[in-house]
Design a protein around this nucleic acid. Structure first.
Lengths: 162, 162
DNA sequence: CCTTGAAGCTACAGTTACTGTAGACATTAG
DNA sequence: CTAATGTCTACAGTAACTGTAGCTTCAAGG
Protein backbone atom coordinates (compact mmCIF):
# COMPACT_ATOMS: atom_id res chain seq x y z
CA UNK A 1 0.00 0.00 0.00
CA UNK A 2 2.29 2.72 1.33
CA UNK A 3 0.59 5.86 0.09
CA UNK A 4 -0.64 4.77 -3.30
CA UNK A 5 -4.23 5.18 -4.39
CA UNK A 6 -4.93 1.54 -4.78
CA UNK A 7 -8.39 1.78 -6.20
CA UNK A 8 -7.60 4.09 -9.06
CA UNK A 9 -6.92 2.72 -12.47
CA UNK A 10 -3.36 3.46 -13.47
CA UNK A 11 -2.96 6.26 -15.98
CA UNK A 12 -2.96 5.47 -19.65
CA UNK A 13 0.76 5.92 -19.88
CA UNK A 14 1.29 2.75 -17.87
CA UNK A 15 -1.19 -0.01 -18.52
CA UNK A 16 -1.70 -2.57 -15.78
CA UNK A 17 -0.46 -6.09 -16.09
CA UNK A 18 -3.56 -8.20 -16.57
CA UNK A 19 -2.18 -11.65 -16.00
CA UNK A 20 -4.18 -12.81 -13.00
CA UNK A 21 -6.65 -15.64 -13.35
CA UNK A 22 -9.86 -15.55 -11.37
CA UNK A 23 -8.52 -18.28 -9.12
CA UNK A 24 -5.38 -16.32 -8.20
CA UNK A 25 -7.51 -13.25 -7.47
CA UNK A 26 -9.81 -15.37 -5.31
CA UNK A 27 -6.80 -16.66 -3.37
CA UNK A 28 -5.41 -13.16 -2.96
CA UNK A 29 -8.66 -11.87 -1.49
CA UNK A 30 -9.48 -15.09 0.32
CA UNK A 31 -12.83 -15.56 -1.32
CA UNK A 32 -14.50 -17.99 -3.66
CA UNK A 33 -14.20 -17.78 -7.43
CA UNK A 34 -17.99 -17.71 -7.64
CA UNK A 35 -18.09 -14.72 -5.35
CA UNK A 36 -15.95 -12.74 -7.78
CA UNK A 37 -18.22 -13.63 -10.67
CA UNK A 38 -21.18 -12.70 -8.49
CA UNK A 39 -19.65 -9.29 -7.72
CA UNK A 40 -19.09 -8.75 -11.41
CA UNK A 41 -22.70 -9.69 -12.08
CA UNK A 42 -24.07 -7.16 -9.60
CA UNK A 43 -21.68 -4.48 -10.79
CA UNK A 44 -19.34 -4.29 -7.81
CA UNK A 45 -16.39 -5.36 -9.91
CA UNK A 46 -15.82 -4.18 -13.49
CA UNK A 47 -16.13 -6.69 -16.30
CA UNK A 48 -12.56 -7.76 -16.95
CA UNK A 49 -11.09 -8.49 -20.38
CA UNK A 50 -11.09 -12.11 -21.51
CA UNK A 51 -8.49 -14.32 -23.10
CA UNK A 52 -9.03 -15.84 -26.54
CA UNK A 53 -10.42 -18.81 -24.64
CA UNK A 54 -12.98 -16.62 -22.84
CA UNK A 55 -11.29 -16.62 -19.46
CA UNK A 56 -11.22 -13.52 -17.26
CA UNK A 57 -7.89 -11.84 -16.68
CA UNK A 58 -7.37 -9.41 -13.81
CA UNK A 59 -4.88 -6.78 -12.71
CA UNK A 60 -3.65 -5.86 -9.24
CA UNK A 61 -6.14 -2.99 -9.05
CA UNK A 62 -8.94 -5.53 -9.32
CA UNK A 63 -7.44 -7.40 -6.40
CA UNK A 64 -7.30 -4.19 -4.39
CA UNK A 65 -10.89 -3.36 -5.17
CA UNK A 66 -11.94 -6.86 -4.21
CA UNK A 67 -9.94 -6.68 -0.97
CA UNK A 68 -11.78 -3.49 -0.17
CA UNK A 69 -15.13 -5.10 -0.83
CA UNK A 70 -14.32 -8.18 1.24
CA UNK A 71 -13.00 -6.11 4.09
CA UNK A 72 -16.07 -3.90 4.17
CA UNK A 73 -18.38 -6.93 3.87
CA UNK A 74 -16.45 -8.65 6.63
CA UNK A 75 -17.20 -5.64 8.80
CA UNK A 76 -20.87 -6.16 8.10
CA UNK A 77 -21.53 -3.41 5.59
CA UNK A 78 -24.31 -4.44 3.25
CA UNK A 79 -23.53 -4.48 -0.45
CA UNK A 80 -25.27 -1.18 -1.05
CA UNK A 81 -23.11 0.53 1.56
CA UNK A 82 -20.03 -0.96 -0.05
CA UNK A 83 -21.24 0.39 -3.36
CA UNK A 84 -21.52 3.84 -1.77
CA UNK A 85 -18.07 3.58 -0.30
CA UNK A 86 -16.63 2.48 -3.62
CA UNK A 87 -18.28 5.40 -5.35
CA UNK A 88 -16.21 7.66 -3.11
CA UNK A 89 -13.07 6.56 -4.85
CA UNK A 90 -14.48 7.50 -8.23
CA UNK A 91 -15.48 11.00 -7.23
CA UNK A 92 -13.70 13.93 -8.79
CA UNK A 93 -11.27 15.64 -6.47
CA UNK A 94 -13.33 18.78 -6.15
CA UNK A 95 -16.74 17.40 -5.13
CA UNK A 96 -16.34 16.34 -1.57
CA UNK A 97 -19.80 16.96 -0.15
CA UNK A 98 -21.38 13.74 -1.35
CA UNK A 99 -18.47 11.77 -0.02
CA UNK A 100 -18.79 13.52 3.29
CA UNK A 101 -22.48 12.63 3.50
CA UNK A 102 -21.81 8.98 2.74
CA UNK A 103 -18.95 8.86 5.20
CA UNK A 104 -21.04 10.42 7.95
CA UNK A 105 -23.87 7.95 7.38
CA UNK A 106 -21.42 5.08 7.56
CA UNK A 107 -19.84 6.51 10.69
CA UNK A 108 -23.20 6.59 12.40
CA UNK A 109 -23.76 3.03 11.31
CA UNK A 110 -20.37 1.98 12.66
CA UNK A 111 -20.90 3.72 16.00
CA UNK A 112 -24.23 1.99 16.41
CA UNK A 113 -22.67 -1.37 15.68
CA UNK A 114 -19.89 -0.76 18.16
CA UNK A 115 -22.29 0.14 20.94
CA UNK A 116 -24.44 -2.92 20.34
CA UNK A 117 -21.44 -5.19 20.17
CA UNK A 118 -20.01 -3.67 23.32
CA UNK A 119 -23.15 -4.42 25.29
CA UNK A 120 -23.16 -7.90 23.81
CA UNK A 121 -19.59 -8.33 24.92
CA UNK A 122 -20.32 -7.54 28.55
CA UNK A 123 -23.34 -9.79 28.51
CA UNK A 124 -21.28 -12.66 27.15
CA UNK A 125 -18.56 -12.01 29.71
CA UNK A 126 -21.11 -12.10 32.48
CA UNK A 127 -22.50 -15.36 31.13
CA UNK A 128 -19.10 -17.01 30.95
CA UNK A 129 -18.20 -15.86 34.44
CA UNK A 130 -21.40 -17.14 35.97
CA UNK A 131 -21.30 -20.28 33.90
CA UNK A 132 -17.81 -21.58 34.57
CA UNK A 133 -17.78 -24.81 36.50
CA UNK A 134 -21.38 -24.59 37.52
CA UNK A 135 -24.49 -26.55 36.66
CA UNK A 136 -27.12 -25.45 34.20
CA UNK A 137 -29.37 -24.77 37.12
CA UNK A 138 -26.82 -22.16 38.17
CA UNK A 139 -26.23 -21.01 34.63
CA UNK A 140 -27.72 -17.68 33.80
CA UNK A 141 -27.17 -17.81 30.04
CA UNK A 142 -30.75 -18.71 29.29
CA UNK A 143 -32.13 -16.40 31.90
CA UNK A 144 -29.89 -13.52 30.90
CA UNK A 145 -30.91 -13.85 27.30
CA UNK A 146 -34.58 -14.06 28.17
CA UNK A 147 -34.64 -11.08 30.45
CA UNK A 148 -36.42 -8.36 28.67
CA UNK A 149 -35.54 -5.89 31.39
CA UNK A 150 -31.90 -6.12 30.36
CA UNK A 151 -32.70 -4.99 26.88
CA UNK A 152 -32.04 -1.54 25.67
CA UNK A 153 -34.11 -0.21 22.83
CA UNK A 154 -31.15 -1.04 20.65
CA UNK A 155 -31.42 -4.73 21.40
CA UNK A 156 -34.43 -5.21 19.23
CA UNK A 157 -33.15 -4.52 15.79
CA UNK A 158 -32.87 -6.58 12.71
CA UNK A 159 -30.57 -9.45 13.67
CA UNK A 160 -29.16 -9.59 10.17
CA UNK A 161 -27.99 -6.01 10.46
CA UNK A 162 -25.41 -6.72 13.16
CA UNK B 1 -38.87 -12.77 35.57
CA UNK B 2 -37.38 -12.19 39.03
CA UNK B 3 -35.65 -15.52 39.65
CA UNK B 4 -38.07 -17.88 37.97
CA UNK B 5 -37.00 -20.32 35.31
CA UNK B 6 -38.98 -18.76 32.54
CA UNK B 7 -38.37 -21.39 29.94
CA UNK B 8 -39.79 -24.29 31.87
CA UNK B 9 -43.33 -25.32 31.33
CA UNK B 10 -45.34 -24.76 34.48
CA UNK B 11 -46.09 -27.93 36.44
CA UNK B 12 -49.26 -29.85 35.76
CA UNK B 13 -50.84 -28.47 38.91
CA UNK B 14 -51.06 -25.03 37.29
CA UNK B 15 -51.77 -25.02 33.58
CA UNK B 16 -50.74 -21.95 31.63
CA UNK B 17 -53.25 -19.51 30.29
CA UNK B 18 -53.19 -19.98 26.55
CA UNK B 19 -55.07 -16.94 25.39
CA UNK B 20 -52.46 -15.16 23.29
CA UNK B 21 -52.94 -14.85 19.54
CA UNK B 22 -49.93 -15.03 17.27
CA UNK B 23 -50.19 -11.31 16.65
CA UNK B 24 -50.01 -10.44 20.34
CA UNK B 25 -47.01 -12.73 20.75
CA UNK B 26 -45.34 -11.08 17.76
CA UNK B 27 -45.90 -7.67 19.30
CA UNK B 28 -44.55 -8.83 22.65
CA UNK B 29 -41.34 -10.11 21.10
CA UNK B 30 -41.15 -7.36 18.50
CA UNK B 31 -41.06 -9.70 15.55
CA UNK B 32 -43.18 -10.58 12.57
CA UNK B 33 -46.04 -13.07 12.71
CA UNK B 34 -44.40 -15.00 9.86
CA UNK B 35 -41.22 -15.29 11.86
CA UNK B 36 -43.09 -17.08 14.65
CA UNK B 37 -44.62 -19.51 12.19
CA UNK B 38 -41.17 -19.97 10.68
CA UNK B 39 -39.66 -20.78 14.09
CA UNK B 40 -42.43 -23.28 14.67
CA UNK B 41 -41.71 -24.83 11.29
CA UNK B 42 -38.01 -25.29 12.03
CA UNK B 43 -38.73 -26.58 15.52
CA UNK B 44 -37.50 -23.64 17.57
CA UNK B 45 -40.94 -23.06 18.99
CA UNK B 46 -43.31 -25.88 19.99
CA UNK B 47 -46.46 -26.42 17.96
CA UNK B 48 -49.13 -24.59 19.94
CA UNK B 49 -52.70 -25.77 20.40
CA UNK B 50 -55.28 -24.40 18.00
CA UNK B 51 -58.75 -22.98 18.45
CA UNK B 52 -61.76 -24.63 16.86
CA UNK B 53 -61.17 -22.24 13.98
CA UNK B 54 -57.56 -23.47 13.56
CA UNK B 55 -55.85 -20.44 15.05
CA UNK B 56 -52.74 -20.78 17.22
CA UNK B 57 -53.05 -19.86 20.89
CA UNK B 58 -49.96 -19.16 23.00
CA UNK B 59 -49.06 -18.85 26.66
CA UNK B 60 -46.60 -16.55 28.39
CA UNK B 61 -43.94 -19.26 28.37
CA UNK B 62 -44.05 -19.20 24.58
CA UNK B 63 -43.47 -15.46 24.68
CA UNK B 64 -40.51 -15.98 27.00
CA UNK B 65 -39.04 -18.61 24.74
CA UNK B 66 -39.51 -16.37 21.73
CA UNK B 67 -37.93 -13.44 23.57
CA UNK B 68 -34.99 -15.67 24.31
CA UNK B 69 -34.67 -16.65 20.66
CA UNK B 70 -34.99 -13.09 19.40
CA UNK B 71 -32.53 -11.80 21.93
CA UNK B 72 -30.00 -14.49 21.10
CA UNK B 73 -30.48 -13.88 17.37
CA UNK B 74 -30.16 -10.14 17.92
CA UNK B 75 -26.89 -10.82 19.69
CA UNK B 76 -25.63 -12.69 16.68
CA UNK B 77 -26.10 -16.31 17.72
CA UNK B 78 -26.92 -18.41 14.67
CA UNK B 79 -30.09 -20.49 14.82
CA UNK B 80 -28.16 -23.66 15.53
CA UNK B 81 -26.46 -22.08 18.52
CA UNK B 82 -29.85 -20.88 19.74
CA UNK B 83 -31.14 -24.41 19.37
CA UNK B 84 -28.21 -25.70 21.42
CA UNK B 85 -28.81 -23.14 24.12
CA UNK B 86 -32.51 -23.97 24.24
CA UNK B 87 -31.78 -27.68 24.47
CA UNK B 88 -29.46 -27.02 27.40
CA UNK B 89 -32.26 -25.30 29.24
CA UNK B 90 -34.23 -28.53 29.09
CA UNK B 91 -31.56 -30.55 30.91
CA UNK B 92 -30.97 -28.46 33.98
CA UNK B 93 -28.87 -30.93 35.95
CA UNK B 94 -26.30 -31.33 33.26
CA UNK B 95 -23.00 -29.57 32.89
CA UNK B 96 -22.76 -26.05 31.62
CA UNK B 97 -19.67 -26.53 29.50
CA UNK B 98 -21.43 -26.59 26.15
CA UNK B 99 -23.21 -23.31 26.80
CA UNK B 100 -19.95 -21.85 28.01
CA UNK B 101 -18.21 -22.95 24.82
CA UNK B 102 -20.85 -21.30 22.67
CA UNK B 103 -20.66 -18.09 24.67
CA UNK B 104 -16.86 -18.01 24.52
CA UNK B 105 -16.85 -18.53 20.76
CA UNK B 106 -19.30 -15.65 20.36
CA UNK B 107 -17.26 -13.46 22.71
CA UNK B 108 -14.14 -13.93 20.63
CA UNK B 109 -16.06 -13.13 17.49
CA UNK B 110 -17.55 -10.00 19.06
CA UNK B 111 -14.26 -8.70 20.42
CA UNK B 112 -12.63 -8.96 17.05
CA UNK B 113 -15.50 -7.20 15.35
CA UNK B 114 -15.35 -4.39 17.86
CA UNK B 115 -11.66 -3.84 17.23
CA UNK B 116 -12.12 -3.82 13.48
CA UNK B 117 -15.05 -1.45 13.67
CA UNK B 118 -13.16 0.82 16.02
CA UNK B 119 -10.32 1.21 13.56
CA UNK B 120 -12.81 1.79 10.77
CA UNK B 121 -14.51 4.41 12.92
CA UNK B 122 -11.34 6.42 13.34
CA UNK B 123 -10.66 6.18 9.62
CA UNK B 124 -14.12 7.51 8.88
CA UNK B 125 -13.70 10.28 11.41
CA UNK B 126 -10.40 11.29 9.89
CA UNK B 127 -11.92 11.21 6.46
CA UNK B 128 -14.82 13.43 7.46
CA UNK B 129 -12.40 15.84 9.09
CA UNK B 130 -10.15 16.01 6.07
CA UNK B 131 -13.05 16.02 3.70
CA UNK B 132 -14.88 19.07 4.97
CA UNK B 133 -13.58 21.67 2.60
CA UNK B 134 -10.87 19.35 1.44
CA UNK B 135 -10.43 16.97 -1.44
CA UNK B 136 -11.24 13.33 -1.94
CA UNK B 137 -7.63 12.71 -2.75
CA UNK B 138 -6.84 13.29 0.90
CA UNK B 139 -9.24 10.59 2.06
CA UNK B 140 -7.74 7.41 3.35
CA UNK B 141 -10.91 5.37 3.95
CA UNK B 142 -10.73 3.46 0.73
CA UNK B 143 -7.08 2.82 1.23
CA UNK B 144 -7.59 1.84 4.84
CA UNK B 145 -10.25 -0.66 3.95
CA UNK B 146 -8.10 -2.14 1.23
CA UNK B 147 -5.08 -2.68 3.39
CA UNK B 148 -4.60 -6.35 3.72
CA UNK B 149 -1.78 -5.86 6.21
CA UNK B 150 -4.33 -4.76 8.77
CA UNK B 151 -6.16 -8.04 8.52
CA UNK B 152 -5.72 -10.87 10.93
CA UNK B 153 -6.77 -14.35 10.03
CA UNK B 154 -10.00 -13.63 11.87
CA UNK B 155 -10.87 -10.89 9.43
CA UNK B 156 -11.80 -13.34 6.79
CA UNK B 157 -14.80 -14.91 8.34
CA UNK B 158 -18.24 -15.47 7.00
CA UNK B 159 -19.79 -12.00 6.91
CA UNK B 160 -23.21 -13.45 7.52
CA UNK B 161 -22.09 -15.05 10.78
CA UNK B 162 -22.22 -11.77 12.69
C1' DC C 1 -78.22 -11.37 14.70
C1' DC C 2 -75.55 -9.67 11.10
C1' DT C 3 -72.04 -7.46 8.95
C1' DT C 4 -67.53 -5.74 8.31
C1' DG C 5 -62.80 -5.10 8.89
C1' DA C 6 -58.80 -6.70 11.15
C1' DA C 7 -56.28 -10.62 11.98
C1' DG C 8 -55.35 -15.48 11.14
C1' DC C 9 -54.62 -19.52 7.96
C1' DT C 10 -51.67 -22.14 4.16
C1' DA C 11 -48.69 -22.16 0.52
C1' DC C 12 -45.38 -20.39 -1.99
C1' DA C 13 -42.33 -16.72 -4.16
C1' DG C 14 -38.78 -13.30 -3.18
C1' DT C 15 -34.75 -11.41 -0.53
C1' DT C 16 -29.54 -11.01 0.44
C1' DA C 17 -25.20 -12.53 -0.32
C1' DC C 18 -23.38 -15.83 -1.47
C1' DT C 19 -22.12 -21.28 -2.34
C1' DG C 20 -22.45 -25.59 -4.80
C1' DT C 21 -23.15 -28.45 -8.90
C1' DA C 22 -23.16 -30.12 -13.78
C1' DG C 23 -21.23 -30.52 -17.97
C1' DA C 24 -18.44 -28.34 -21.43
C1' DC C 25 -14.14 -25.88 -22.72
C1' DA C 26 -9.21 -23.82 -21.77
C1' DT C 27 -4.66 -23.98 -20.02
C1' DT C 28 -0.49 -25.91 -18.49
C1' DA C 29 3.01 -29.37 -16.57
C1' DG C 30 5.24 -33.37 -17.80
C1' DC D 1 0.18 -35.07 -26.50
C1' DT D 2 -2.24 -36.08 -22.74
C1' DA D 3 -3.80 -35.72 -18.09
C1' DA D 4 -4.82 -32.80 -14.47
C1' DT D 5 -6.37 -28.75 -13.12
C1' DG D 6 -8.75 -24.53 -13.84
C1' DT D 7 -12.43 -21.84 -15.93
C1' DC D 8 -16.81 -21.22 -18.36
C1' DT D 9 -22.18 -20.74 -18.09
C1' DA D 10 -26.34 -21.71 -16.04
C1' DC D 11 -28.92 -22.84 -12.55
C1' DA D 12 -30.19 -24.87 -7.88
C1' DG D 13 -29.58 -24.44 -2.95
C1' DT D 14 -28.53 -22.03 1.59
C1' DA D 15 -29.90 -19.16 5.94
C1' DA D 16 -33.14 -16.63 8.04
C1' DC D 17 -36.39 -14.53 7.25
C1' DT D 18 -40.16 -11.33 4.56
C1' DG D 19 -43.87 -10.61 1.38
C1' DT D 20 -47.97 -11.97 -1.26
C1' DA D 21 -52.32 -14.23 -2.68
C1' DG D 22 -56.45 -15.96 -1.62
C1' DC D 23 -58.85 -17.72 1.58
C1' DT D 24 -61.26 -18.29 6.71
C1' DT D 25 -62.07 -16.76 11.49
C1' DC D 26 -62.89 -13.61 15.07
C1' DA D 27 -64.59 -9.55 17.69
C1' DA D 28 -66.98 -5.30 17.76
C1' DG D 29 -70.60 -2.09 16.09
C1' DG D 30 -75.22 -1.32 14.33
Amino acid sequence: MSGEKVLEEPAAKERPIRDLTIGRVADAADCKVQTIRYYEQIGLLPTPPRTAGNQRRYSQSDVDRLLFIRHARGLGFPIDAVRDLLSLSNMPDHSCIAADTIARAQLENVEHRISRLTSLKSELERMIEQCSGGQISDCRVIEALSEHSNCTELDHVDPTAV
